[in-house]
């Protein structure tokens, strides 16, 4: 029987936005979108899509993409479809913009109950906007499922899943019963590029949409547990001492002497 794999993805501001174009509106504690720089699918989430597609390549699987947010750019959000995913399910509503982790878990859990059951639920290790790295863990607790983070390889086996979990110094091999929630890290390797055929196919697919009513969510489910009190860009007063020399080698020599002078080396 074909596996059903859900991949949770998020639309985020492009993390490659140059620091000079990164602006915050401190009066409303929000990031101002950089003009002319479209959002992207969170990078680690694309690694999660890649992990799902490798499983699909190796056997039979249906890959369902789930996303929560507001103001989706359809060309951006269809990228997982053009990579080879089968279905895109969106919960899009002004009330779903910049949700905190607890609320995001509430919405994703409802989406999974609606679109499930799934054998595996994958997500990127963290999103490059709020960098919290805990929505998938919360989702697992909410759904009563085991969770394993930082996968660099995901291999389903009869009724269980074998994961290589990246550590700061090496990796662990972990087995969990399915269904399970797994976060994927960049150690998995690069996500594939969409093919022309994939892009054409994706352009013909329409996302399935779930409203807050469909999901049975109320205002209470969307009430933040952490209150964002202040958002600001840290001051960095550059005080760099540029070491110059007659040529580059001389500058290198002088750098060493300067560091020695201050007893730093």
């Amino acid at each position: 029987m074909a596996l059903r794999i859900a991949v949770c993805v998020k639309q985020v501001p492009d993390p490659e936005t140059p620091a000079s174009a990164f602006k915050v509106d401190e009066t409303v504690n929000r990031v101002v979108p950089a003009p002319g720089i479209p959002p992207v699918v969170n990078g680690f989430d694309l690694h999660a899509v890649e992990a799902a597609l490798r499983i699909k390549d190796a056997g039979e699987a249906e890959v369902v993409i789930l996303a929560v947010g507001n103001d989706f750019v359809m060309d951006v959000m269809k990228k997982p479809l053009s990579m080879g995913a089968d279905v895109l399910v969106l919960a899009e509503d002004p009330a779903l913009e910049d949700l905190d982790a607890v609320c995001t878990v509430n919405v994703l859990a409802a989406m999974i109950e609606k679109s499930g059951p799934f054998d595996l639920i994958l997500a990127g290790r963290q999103a490059s906007d709020w960098d919290q790295a805990h929505v998938p863990l919360g989702l697992a607790e909410r759904l009563g499922l085991p969770s394993v983070t930082l996968a660099r390889n995901v291999e389903p086996q009869d009724g269980k899943v074998r994961i290589e979990r990246a550590l700061t110094d090496g990796y662990q091999v972990v087995e969990a019963p399915t269904p399970a929630v797994i976060t994927v890290s960049n150690e998995l390797g690069e996500a594939r590029y969409p093919t022309l055929r994939g892009i054409m196919g994706a352009s013909r697919k329409q996302p399935e949409r779930l409203t807050l009513d469909d999901l049975g969510l109320t205002a209470d489910d969307l009430k933040p547990a952490l209150e964002l009190q202040r958002l600001f860009i840290p001051e960095s007063e550059s005080q760099v001492e540029i070491i110059e020399g007659e040529d580059e080698a001389d500058a290198g020599r002088k750098l060493a002497l300067r560091l020695r002078e201050l007893n730093l080396i």
Binding site: S238, V240, I243, E244, R253
Partner: peptide, 20 residues
């Protein structure tokens, strides 16, 4: 990186590093 650095050398590392 120079915004956070205390010391810096601007140039080709392949020439700077061996001398350093």
């Amino acid at each position: 990186i120079f915004k956070s650095a205390r010391f810096g050398v601007i140039g080709d590392w392949a020439k700077i590093l061996p001398a350093f």
